[in-house]
């Protein structure tokens, strides 16, 4: 088992950071041997979530980690913000629901793009953790 790749922590504050974050996510999944479809899905998921951070909270953080072990390759991405939070998580995870006149596909769509999806939200702290995995 080779060493894990170093984690990447990024501040999210403007639309250029979206590009940086999804590029970093794509790069790490590429280095770990994920296929192109996987990479694109992960990069798109990061793009969605970081855009949400900027749109709803203004600023936040993005942490990209390599959690691979002997059995599988794992990329885990944690995206946090200290914005107002999501009032109704169940509603927000429904297709077509949006508070900002968007498509309402961001959160439910992102969940379908990745293997694991955890979201917790309260005023002042919203955290989304997504994971993609593939057998080593």
């Amino acid at each position: 088992m080779t060493e894990r790749l170093p984690s990447i922590e990024l501040a999210i504050g403007n639309s250029a950071d979206i590009v940086t974050a999804r590029h970093a996510a794509r790069e790490m999944s590429n280095q770990l041997g994920f296929g192109k479809a996987h990479q694109t899905r992960l990069a798109t998921a990061v793009s969605e979530l970081t855009r949400n951070v900027i749109q709803y909270a203004g600023t936040g953080h993005c942490m990209i980690e390599d959690l691979s072990d002997a059995r599988e390759r794992v990329v885990q991405i944690t995206i946090e913000d200290h914005g107002p939070g999501i009032a109704d998580l169940i509603l927000a995870m429904e297709d077509g629901f949006s508070t900002s006149n968007g498509l309402g596909a961001g959160l439910p769509g992102t969940r379908r793009l990745v293997d694991d999806f955890h979201i917790s939200s309260s005023p002042g702290m919203t955290r989304v953790i997504i994971t993609v995995r593939k057998p080593a």
Binding site: A105, P108, G109, R112, L113
Partner: peptide, 12 residues
């Protein structure tokens, strides 16, 4: 091809 797959997964 990857973009198409991603778009359908997103539900767009």
């Amino acid at each position: 091809p990857e973009g198409a797959q991603t778009l359908t997964k997103l539900g767009i």
